[in-house]
Amino acid sequence: MMFGKMFHRFKNRPQHPADSKRHDGLSGSWFSLNDVEHAKEFKIKSIHSHGAIRQRLLDMGLVPGITVTVIRDAPLADPLEVRIGDSFISLRRTEAKQIEVHDDKQQ
């Protein structure tokens, strides 16, 4: 029964709650994991992607509130390698751009 629905798509992607606030100028731009300096700790604030991509990021431990460090770029600049605790995750820049981070120390 469930298998019939196995290949459904994510319909009506919800708008990110933080995105809707963008217009009133409160939170204009944000830093993504793609923009940050290497070897520095940041905290994940929010994941701006949806559906399967978002879930995959969460599954690999890129969850809101966790501390990440970008360690290196691949030889051809993409993907990135990040460290979360004791595990090392590689992800493409397109995905990294969807991950909002903020400076850990400033909080």
Binding site: M60, E81, F88, I89, L91, R92
Partner: peptide, 12 residues
């Protein structure tokens, strides 16, 4: 077709 991101653990 469906695509998925490249998010992969680099195991120890």
């Amino acid at each position: 077709m469906e695509t998925a991101p490249f998010v992969m653990e680099l195991p120890h």
